[in-house]
């Protein structure tokens, strides 16, 4: 994706110097693509391992692998530090429009893909993990059913971070509740304390563990997942840092999700990319939060499902119990 984007950029902008161009990390390999590297020398070396790179003149050159140097990539320690500090001057907030959800579950799929989570399609289907889940609920016997995407609520008064004995899960200044999989001892007290069942555990080896083996741990992505630790929705903090919307928000095709910054009082719709005033959206649409009686003060708001744009079709069998709405 990135390489394609930047190649297009090259066509449009031939003024790029070679140095700048390489800095952007454009390296096209035959069969391999390495993003974020810089060539320190073009001489082949003893190891004989070479990589084909696309030079500034548009020609492919072969260079020794040792001469590629990582630039612009944070070390694990830097990632950990940034993950604790959060994104300055932001107060992230999510608004979920229940009238627009038709249970497509594209949000769930995107989330599972990017966060290295087990899905029902993997293996025997006995390992399923969700950072975001879509519930089917009913407010009472007489009212109609509706679908409710549920992420971590990123509470301002989180019951989960309070009980963590090692400060592995914590609340950041930008409103996000994160979990550090390198510190978590796996006691699952936070799982017990969360009233929204938003937290899941890595009971088994993480999915595609080998594939992620050399990846640096990014606390803002919760990847690579670590067995024996808790994982949860992180509001796609890694995406927010790059100025992008969360994975689930972008994946939705029905305009369910609004995401933005409370400080700016603006939220953007993941589907239409329309940006509106947060305060007005909440005020005009009778926004509410989940289980307000617990005073957890969620950062995720819901707009009631009045004026549904899709007909509701239950997927549940008779006798299933809905506990809460």
């Amino acid at each position: 994706m990135k390489i394609k984007k930047q190649l297009e950029q090259k066509d449009n902008n031939t003024k790029n110097t070679r140095r700048e161009f390489l800095k952007k990390g454009v390296l096209a390999g035959v069969g391999t693509i390495l993003a974020g590297g810089i060539v320190t020398s073009f001489n082949a070396t003893a190891s004989g391992k070479t990589v084909n790179v696309l030079g500034p003149d548009g020609k492919v050159k072969t260079v020794a692998k040792e001469h590629l140097k990582d630039i612009g990539k944070k070390t694990e320690a830097q990632l950990q530090k940034a993950g604790r500090e959060g994104i300055p001057n932001r107060r992230w907030v999510m608004v979920i429009d229940l009238g627009k959800c038709k249970n497509d579950q594209r949000c769930m799929e995107a989330c599972q893909t990017h966060h290295q989570l087990w899905t029902s399609k993997d293996g025997k289907g006995d390992k399923v993990q969700h950072h975001i889940n879509v519930h089917e609920l009913k407010r009472n016997e007489k009212s109609g059913g509706f679908f409710m995407p549920k992420t971590c609520q990123h509470c301002d008064n989180p019951p989960c971070t309070k009980v963590c004995p090692v400060d592995a899960t914590y609340k950041r200044d930008d409103g996000i509740v994160l979990i550090d999989n390198l510190r978590c001892i796996g006691c699952r007290f936070c799982v017990a304390a969360c009233p929204y069942s938003a937290r899941v555990f890595n009971w088994h080896n993480p999915k595609d563990e080998e594939k992620y083996a050399d990846k640096k741990y990014n606390v803002e992505l919760n990847v690579p997942q670590k067995r024996g630790t808790v994982t949860k929705c992180v509001f796609s903090a890694d995406r927010l840092r790059e100025g992008e919307l969360p994975y689930c928000v972008s994946a939705c095709g029905n305009g369910v999700f609004w995401f933005g910054d409370e400080n700016e009082d603006a939220v953007t719709n993941g589907t239409t990319k329309e940006t509106v005033r947060l305060s007005k959206l909440l005020k005009d649409n009778a926004a509410y939060t989940l289980m307000p009686e617990l005073a957890t003060r969620p950062r995720v708001y819901y707009l009631p499902e009045k004026d549904r744009i899709f007909p509701f079709e239950s997927k549940k069998k008779e006798g299933d119990v809905n506990h809460h709405a």
Binding site: P165, I185, C187
Partner: peptide
């Protein structure tokens, strides 16, 4: 019961007073 028994010492290194554990 711990998922990561080898990190037991974290309870002493990073221990937080507000946790009942």
């Amino acid at each position: 019961d711990m998922g990561r028994p080898e990190r037991l010492l974290n309870v002493f290194i990073h221990g937080r007073l507000q946790s009942p554990i």
